[in-house]
Design a protein around this nucleic acid. Structure first.
Lengths: 201, 201
DNA sequence: GACAAAGTGAACGGCTCCGTTCAATTAAAC
DNA sequence: GTTTAATTGAACGGAGCCGTTCACTTTGTC
């Protein structure tokens, strides 16, 4: 009985918190500002979440969920070179979104304060992408399109080449040339196939 | 005439500032704390540097100088595989030092406020390493040990493989296995040589 | 030793924020 | 319409920090 909790406000707070935390950083973000942005009283924020650090935790969790949902990698067919190129483009498009970079920056700055947040994010995002790529490589090996020993290692090499220097450049605020990204992906796949391809793909 | 400026205090302040900024982040670091750490009065800090943001600027500049000095890459001889492995170890050892990771994290968080800092750091550090690697590759090509078209691109691929996922893991506070790093470097060189080697190295 | 500038310690005003309290208001459930 | 709980607005104490001021002490030069 009594007035029920307004779930809409609950979500609005988390969303406003996510925006604030990963735009300004944990310490710069203010509960007052988040409450105002969510169209809610500061007291309501405290009633819902208890405090700043709990709120940050929830914001990260929610973001990880979103990442997890979007990371359903399609299993399409075609020559292995094509599949890898597709994967590379999907991966870079996803990881290099400005909001994702900002999220990573903000999270890294808070990891010392709350170490498990970093591990959670890594497992929800990059680790899953990496596993998906390793799986893709293993299936190609089963088909005789590739030859290698360690799929995990190959996935790490390939994924790293897809990113190149670009993620660092983005963190340092250096503008990115999309053409170079496309050429890098293509070149990385070529290099990888020269080393590990069988010519069957 | 009068009392001369104490250069020792000047340096002590910059060093304390560097420590504070890249351990706690710009906004968390306090002038009061930096002054205390440097064994100096707060007023002295203001007299020397004028304010917090100027002090941060100087701290970054000093760090970039240090990086530049240490980045003199030896030109030693030997088979190309050996040289690349050496480079990989030197590079990862340098870039994966906890203090360097912390520096990068702290800097990324401040780039929005002061964009040129990021560009300066990138030019002083990663860019120089990248150029050194590209030069190494080109000389090996001249000797007929390698074949490729774009040295810059190859350097980016190789450098990225050397780092792998590890720099992200470090930023996310995940413990690093040094053995895996060594195996990754070795594996990356092998992969690169299978793709671009001539067998002459 | 006189002088001049560097450096100190303490205090101040101003600002922002956290987290709490409390009376008053709103909105749904019964 | 009464009950119950969510929500609000405003205010508070406490904390930390910035940047400045000022009287005072130190330390070197002339």
């Amino acid at each position: 009985m009594g007035r029920p909790v307004d779930a809409g406000k609950h979500d609005a707070i988390i969303e406003a918190a996510t925006r604030a935390f990963f735009k300004h950083g944990y310490s710069q973000a203010s509960i007052e500002g988040i409450a105002a942005d969510a169209g809610v009283s500061k007291v309501t924020v405290y009633n819902h979440f208890g405090g700043k650090s709990e709120l940050f935790q929830r914001a990260v969790e929610k973001r990880c969920d979103t990442i997890r949902q979007r990371l359903i990698v399609d299993e399409w067919d075609g020559p292995i070179g094509e599949r890898l190129r597709e994967f590379g483009h999907a991966m870079t498009e996803f990881l290099m979104k400005p909001e994702m970079i900002q999220f990573e920056i903000g999270l890294a700055a808070e990891v010392e304060r709350e170490p498990e947040l970093g591990a959670n994010f890594f497992a929800a995002g990059p680790k899953r992408l990496h596993s998906a790529l390793a799986g893709l490589l293993e299936r190609a090996r089963d088909r005789g399109e590739l030859q290698f020993e360690d799929a995990e290692m190959c996935a790490e090499h390939l994924g790293a080449m897809f990113k190149g220097l670009t993620d660092l450049e983005q963190r340092m605020g250096i503008p990115i040339d999309p053409d170079r990204t496309a050429r890098r992906i293509s070149s990385a796949v070529d290099l990888f196939l020269r080393a590990n391809g069988t010519g069957k793909g």
